[in-house]
Design a protein around this nucleic acid. Structure first.
Length: 249
DNA sequence: TAGGCCATCTGGTCCT
DNA sequence: AGGACCAGATGGCCTA
């Protein structure tokens, strides 16, 4: 049954091969075999048939109707699964994982678990960001009120003690704090050819650890002082950057 | 060769 | 009634 896919789809979950619903799969599955078998039996029986042709035609008709219905149902189900796989592919595209012809694509279960962890990580980052921004604005508001109350006190100069520096520093600390699962993953010889294990995806990991850096995405970059940083926390294009970088690692 | 992953078929169930 | 959704079964392909 998978034979109609195997030689063409290169194990894609969304095969490029568009199977002709009424020809491709039909002629390569057991339905076709049973169909042939039934036809053979029918023709053999037909040689003995001399009367009662009308009722036989009726049963043939219902059989054909049933087969038609079955083919239609199969076709719909196939289309449904293809749509599901298309959605899965579109999800893979936005996942922070290496893409490319030389990289085996994530399995469905891996994609779903990775997506879950990615969402958790982003939620955690967002919360952290909100907190930091709250600190920044809360602090500046307090400083402004202090300045208004005491005009002699000048606001802090934009130096390394500037709130934004603190923000950036915090982000980098956050990023570098967790060990890199991608690094850990790439330490395996098959890193680029095998999808992450359930362990890597945090399947068994407690939620709290997931919230810190479930994918250890940020930790896959080394943050050198003074060097331009390509990490997802420092760049506006996290996914593509991550894709290319995890490919090159 | 075993195990993982996948596509497909199929029958059942639920919904419109 | 027809369609969507689901889960089990089956068989093929690929990798360790």
């Amino acid at each position: 049954m998978g034979s109609d896919c195997g030689s063409n789809c290169s194990r894609s979950s969304s095969p490029d091969l568009v199977v002709d619903d009424h020809a491709g799969s039909f002629f390569s599955n057991k339905m076709f075999q049973s169909y042939c078998q039934e036809n053979r039996e029918d023709s053999e029986a037909g040689q003995d048939r001399t009367v009662d042709g009308q009722s036989q035609a009726g049963t043939d008709l219902s059989k054909i109707d049933t087969q038609d219905l079955r083919l239609k149902v199969n076709s719909r189900e196939r289309k449904r699964m293809h749509d599901l796989n298309t959605a899965m592919d579109s999800l893979r595209e936005v996942m922070p994982y290496a893409h490319g012809p030389s990289v085996r694509k994530l399995s469905k279960i891996s994609t779903l678990m990775l997506a879950r962890n990615y969402i958790l990580m982003l939620s955690g980052s967002l919360d952290e960001m909100k907190k930091l921004v709250g600190d920044v604005y809360g602090g500046s508001a307090a400083a402004q009120s202090r300045t208004a109350a005491h005009p002699a006190i000048t606001p802090a100069a934009p130096t390394a003690h500037h709130p934004l520096h603190h923000l950036a520093h915090s982000l980098h600390s956050l990023a570098a704090s967790a060990p890199s699962a991608l690094q850990h993953h790439s330490s395996h010889a098959t890193a680029l050819h095998s999808p992450p294990s359930a362990g890597f995806l945090g399947f068994h990991a407690p939620v709290q650890s997931l919230m810190k850096d479930p994918l250890h995405l940020a930790g896959c970059y080394r943050h050198f002082p003074g060097m331009p940083c390509p990490c997802s926390l420092c760049q506006p294009l996290p996914t593509s950057t991550l894709h290319s970088l995890s490919l090159s690692k």
